[in-house]
Amino acid sequence: MSSLIVVHPPSPEGGRRVTSHGETLGTAYGLTDLIEYLGRTGLDVATIDLYDDAIIDWRGGNHLVWGREAE
């Protein structure tokens, strides 16, 4: 089974595209944005485990990488 949420690698301009089942939820520039998108999918953001790879697939860096610093 694939993850519910994919956080894609940082773009050259900064930020990371966030998708759910192939649908773009938006571009996150930090955890605040990501948590907003997770809430929109119906996930309980109060109990979400950002390290649970069944829920979130981090590509191109973990939750600390959001912009050009990944290059």
Score class of each variant (00 low, 15 high):
1 M>L: 05
44 D>W: 10
30 G>K: 05
18 V>A: 12
32 T>P: 07
42 G>A: 09
51 Y>L: 06
71 E>P: 03
46 A>W: 03
23 E>Y: 10
26 G>T: 12
22 G>L: 10
8 H>Q: 15
46 A>M: 05
64 L>V: 00
35 I>R: 13
58 W>A: 05
52 D>V: 01
18 V>D: 12
49 D>I: 00
39 G>M: 11
12 P>K: 06
4 L>W: 05
21 H>N: 14
52 D>C: 01
29 Y>M: 08
46 A>V: 00
15 G>D: 12
20 S>V: 11
24 T>Y: 10
66 W>Q: 07
8 H>W: 11
38 L>W: 01
71 E>V: 07
4 L>V: 09
3 S>E: 13
16 R>Q: 06
6 V>H: 08
70 A>S: 15
17 R>S: 10
14 G>M: 05
65 V>P: 10
56 I>V: 09
34 L>K: 07
67 G>Q: 08
27 T>I: 15
51 Y>R: 06
58 W>P: 07
46 A>T: 08
45 V>D: 03
42 G>F: 09
28 A>R: 13
40 R>W: 04
21 H>I: 09
53 D>V: 01
18 V>M: 11
39 G>H: 12
7 V>W: 05
68 R>Q: 13
21 H>M: 13
57 D>I: 02
55 I>L: 07
63 H>D: 12
32 T>S: 15
52 D>Q: 02
11 S>A: 15
55 I>D: 02
33 D>Y: 02
56 I>A: 03
19 T>R: 13
49 D>G: 00
29 Y>S: 14
48 I>R: 01
70 A>F: 11
71 E>W: 15
14 G>V: 01
7 V>M: 03
71 E>Y: 14
37 Y>W: 02
22 G>R: 10
37 Y>S: 04
43 L>Y: 08
57 D>K: 11
30 G>S: 09
60 G>W: 11
66 W>T: 02
41 T>Q: 09
70 A>I: 07
43 L>S: 07
30 G>A: 06
26 G>M: 10
46 A>K: 06
62 N>D: 15
32 T>A: 15
11 S>R: 15
24 T>P: 15
55 I>A: 02
53 D>E: 13
43 L>G: 06
39 G>Y: 09
35 I>C: 01
54 A>M: 02
24 T>I: 14
57 D>R: 12
59 R>N: 11
3 S>A: 15
42 G>H: 09
20 S>I: 03
41 T>P: 07
56 I>P: 04
28 A>K: 12
21 H>F: 14
64 L>S: 05
62 N>M: 00
16 R>G: 02
63 H>V: 04
2 S>T: 13
29 Y>W: 03
15 G>P: 06
9 P>M: 02
61 G>N: 03
38 L>K: 06
44 D>E: 13
64 L>G: 00
51 Y>H: 07
62 N>Y: 05
45 V>R: 11
20 S>L: 04
48 I>Y: 01
50 L>C: 00
18 V>W: 07
42 G>M: 09
24 T>H: 12
6 V>Q: 11
1 M>P: 08
45 V>I: 15
22 G>E: 10
64 L>W: 01
14 G>E: 13
34 L>T: 02
